[in-house]
Simulated scan of single mutants.
Amino acid sequence: DEAAGNPVALALRSAIDAFALPPERLEAMIDARLQEMAPQDDFNLVAFEAYAAEREGERLRLASQIAAGGHDLDDRSAHAPAGLAVALTGMLSALPIRAGAAPTLFPADVAARHGASLQDFDLRRASAGVIAASAEMRALAREKLAEAESRLATSPRAILPAFVPLGALGLDLDRLERNAAQPFEPTREVSALRRQWAIWRWARKR
């Protein structure tokens, strides 16, 4: 009520009312943003998965409810693997910007498994361990993308517009793959036309 004069808050509140959006899911997204700014000391893969569920998974779930006119029809929980795939790709894409300047959110246990440390990421050292750990995260993102696609294949068509971001996710993972040996160097962005074409093809297959 106190924020009613803010147009963004007003629009958000209207959407909550119109589509019966659970406030606790929006609160979870806020909690995830706080985790981005100050992750726990032992931030591992389990913690990343929890973060991804709140940051991207809840966003996709809310979007699917809006697409379905206020009904929660994601009975196959496609938002869970989709959210993790989106979050992993986003984390890896942000390494050139965040490494050394902000928390990268790279799971410490995955880095350690390949003989690397979070300090390597902070110092932007593209060691063999860092490269291998990043490759594991790309592979996990592709696995979760495939799982999300499989779940969407048997999901109500009404929720599909919410998952359009998955259409170009493969392009982003391919881009990261080409830059695998230099994870801290900016990659060449996919053209807007190619991205739109990938999304169009993804939608046509549904």
Rank of each mutant, 00 (worst) to 15 (best):
E2K: 04
E2Q: 06
A4S: 14
A9H: 02
L10V: 00
P22V: 12
R25K: 13
R25I: 05
E27G: 05
A28K: 08
D31S: 14
A38F: 14
Q40W: 08
Q40K: 13
N44Y: 03
A47H: 13
Y51E: 02
E54L: 12
G57E: 04
L62R: 00
A67P: 01
A68N: 10
A68Q: 08
L73E: 15
L73S: 11
D75R: 13
A82S: 03
G83P: 05
L84F: 07
A85K: 01
A87D: 05
L88K: 01
L88E: 07
A94P: 03
I97P: 00
I97N: 06
R98V: 09
R98I: 03
R98D: 12
R98Y: 07
A99H: 05
G100Y: 09
A102R: 15
A102Q: 12
L105T: 07
A108E: 13
A111G: 02
A111E: 06
A111C: 14
A112K: 11
A112T: 14
R113N: 11
A116E: 04
A116Q: 03
S117G: 12
L118E: 11
Q119G: 11
D120V: 08
R124C: 14
I131H: 07
A132E: 15
S134L: 10
E143T: 10
E147V: 04
A148V: 02
S150M: 14
S155T: 02
P156D: 09
R157A: 15
R157I: 04
L160Y: 05
P161F: 00
P161Q: 07
P165D: 02
L169N: 00
G170R: 02
G170Q: 06
G170H: 02
D172R: 14
L173M: 15
L176S: 05
L176M: 09
E177Y: 10
A180F: 06
F184T: 04
P186E: 12
R188L: 05
E189T: 08
S191C: 00
R195A: 00
W197H: 03
W202R: 08
